[in-house]
């Protein structure tokens, strides 16, 4: 049996980072990897850069930065093959769910009543459905009469939309679309 390898031995930092990312089933931050390997965050980030370039050259995997960490994924070219193999259950997001998700993503923390105010329709079902899909989460209570629940997006939201953090959301439209002029 081969001896266990420690970071100080002969393996390259890139391979060590690769090994940890290969087994991780959630995004791992540079800090987490650094702590596990006994490296500095800078060393880990360097290793991640090298690994990203190495994977880009060949192979079915790629390194993705999302939800505040790094995670290995398969390349998009292999999507059809893998989907046929794994037969994953696709969860469709309806227009109403997307609306609620977008409102919460941009206005969080936000109450149900505030979501409904923007949409103009009742939204409790959509919020509940998004909570069940772990895309939304309760983040506290608003200090107003009734202390309504405040909702925010979850790490799962970042993961499902391949976002590293909320700053990557596109800016909201600041101008209303112009109405067609009367003929």
């Amino acid at each position: 049996m081969e001896e266990a390898v420690t970071p100080n031995q002969h393996l390259e930092a890139v391979d060590l980072v690769f090994a940890l990312l290969f087994v991780a089933d959630t995004p791992s931050s540079a800090e987490t990897l650094a702590s596990a390997l006994g490296f500095t965050v800078g060393q880990v980030e360097q290793a991640v850069d090298v690994l990203t370039k190495r994977l880009r050259k060949a192979g079915p995997l790629q390194l993705v930065k999302l939800a505040g960490g790094y995670q290995l994924s398969t390349r998009a070219e292999y999507a059809e093959l893998i989907a046929n193999f794994l037969k994953p259950q696709r969860q469709r997001l309806s227009r109403s769910l997307m609306e609620v998700l977008a409102i919460v993503a941009y206005r969080q923390p936000i109450t149900m009543a505030e979501v409904e105010e923007v949409r103009g329709v009742q939204s409790d079902y959509a919020v509940k459905a998004l909570m069940e899909r772990r895309l939304l989460q309760e983040v506290g209570r608003k200090t107003v009469p009734g202390r309504p629940v405040l909702y925010g997006t979850s790490a799962q939201f970042l993961h499902q939309f391949k976002l590293n953090d909320l700053k990557e959301l596109p800016p909201l439209e600041t101008e209303m679309p112009a109405l067609p002029s009367p003929e």
């Binding site: 227009r95 997307m98 609306e99 993503a105 949409r119 499902q160 939309f161 596109p170 439209e173």
Partner: peptide
């Protein structure tokens, strides 16, 4: 605030999804 304000964001999110 109105839902029209979010239409571009919704389209972007859908694409990313």
């Amino acid at each position: 605030p109105s839902i029209q304000e979010f239409s571009y964001a919704i389209d972007s999110l859908r694409l990313w999804y």
